[in-house]
Design a protein around this nucleic acid. Structure first.
Length: 319
RNA sequence: GGUGCCAUAGCUCAGCAGGUAGAGCAACGGACUGAAAAUCCGUGUGUCCUUGGUUCGAUUCCGAGUGGCACCA
């Protein structure tokens, strides 16, 4: 059972007019963590992570969470807070972040948010429609049917049950079809009728900054990060998670390739190359997501001073 | 020094009995309202080493040059 969290009341929210959420986003390995810590230090505030994998307690090396020293210097939220066995989704994240922000803004004028999960960032900025919680049994049944029957019969079913969503859905993407059917079977109401579209307004102001190295530099940073992860014990970490490798949260770059190595499917050398390649691809997908957001002010790694100047300019120069 | 083989996409290579070229990997672009580091869709990016010749036409055939590899000295 998922606890329903209360959205702050209107009275509390009206006081947040001069509060600023500073978002630092960018592709993986672009230097977000360091930048966020420096900037949060300058503004004497705290950091909210918007990272769908650093959330998990059990994951550390492969997700490049901030180290102990960094976590001590600035308080972080949403780092290693839930278990990979827990069910979690962006809507829960939205609720929890709004709750937390309401609390943090009572003592700070500025809060920093850092992360590379575009959907997590967007949900905090614009919200997401409310959907019913789906019974895990329904989800499993549909998943089983997909495994047995393939996508075509589910697609035809969606066409019959929710023609509106069918007409605009990505019909070759099983996840989209399954999601819509889950909601239909949970409620008897078409998924499309839950999608209202309009974006929620937030009572606080949002300033978006991004860090985007040149492509060559980004790939070099990725290579170094991956080599560093191997040296720091990624293989041992993956071994300790091997018996639960089917968990959704472990369908993650860095872990899945090491599992294949442990299964003897690839050599260690191949696994490391694949981690690098898959991280590059992930970074590109992140950039595709961020590119369409024209509100982001872009910087290069190390341009902390420029970022701080930009933030001061946007907030009216107060600290 | 001699002989032979090779030179085509970022890489490994295929191909064209002469009509300006394609495969794997890599790369690049896009979608994305509850597992999003997930999932799905799309794209060939090229002085066919250089230079003469033959030809209506040469990446393809011939000569020379350059570079690489192998073997013989």
């Amino acid at each position: 059972m998922i606890p329903v969290l209360k959205i702050p009341s209107k009275g509390m929210m009206s006081q947040l007019k001069n509060k600023y959420l500073i978002i630092i986003l960018g592709p993986t390995a672009s230097g977000k963590t360091d930048a966020a810590i420096q900037i949060a230090g300058i503004f004497r505030t705290k950091i909210i992570s918007a990272d769908s994998r650093q959330l998990y307690k059990e994951l550390k090396i492969g997700t490049a969470v901030p180290d102990q020293r960094q976590l001590k210097s600035i308080q972080h939220y949403f780092i290693q807070t839930i278990s990979i066995h827990d069910y979690y989704n962006v809507s829960m994240y939205e609720q929890e972040v709004l709750e937390l922000l309401n609390k943090l803004f009572s003592e700070k004028d500025i809060v920093v948010m850092v992360g590379g999960s575009g959907m997590y960032v967007d949900v905090v900025c614009h919200g997401i429609d409310d959907l019913p919680v789906v019974d895990p049994l329904i989800r499993e049944t549909l998943q089983q049917r997909f495994n047995d029957e393939g996508i075509e019969s589910l697609r035809l079913e969606l066409k019959r049950l929710d023609p509106v969503y069918y007409s605009k859905a990505d019909l070759r993407n099983p996840k989209r079809i399954l999601k819509a059917l889950e909601i239909y079977y949970m409620t008897g109401i078409p998924y499309s009728s839950f999608l209202t579209g309009p974006k929620k307004e937030r009572p606080f102001k949002i300033i978006k900054t991004g860090i985007n190295p040149d492509r060559d530099e980004l790939y070099e940073r990725i290579n170094q990060r991956v080599n560093g992860m191997i040296q720091s014990g990624l293989i041992e970490e993956a071994k300790s998670l091997y018996n639960i490798k089917e968990c959704n949260a472990l369908n993650t770059v860095g872990y899945k390739e090491i599992f294949d190595y442990l299964d003897g499917k690839v050599t260690l050398e191949q696994a490391i190359s694949l981690i690098k390649r898959n991280t590059r691809r992930y970074a590109r997908r992140q950039l595709t997501w961020f590119r369409k957001d024209k509100a982001i002010a872009w910087f290069r790694p190390g341009e902390i001073k420029n970022m701080v100047d930009y933030i001061k300019e946007q907030t009216g120069n107060f600290e």
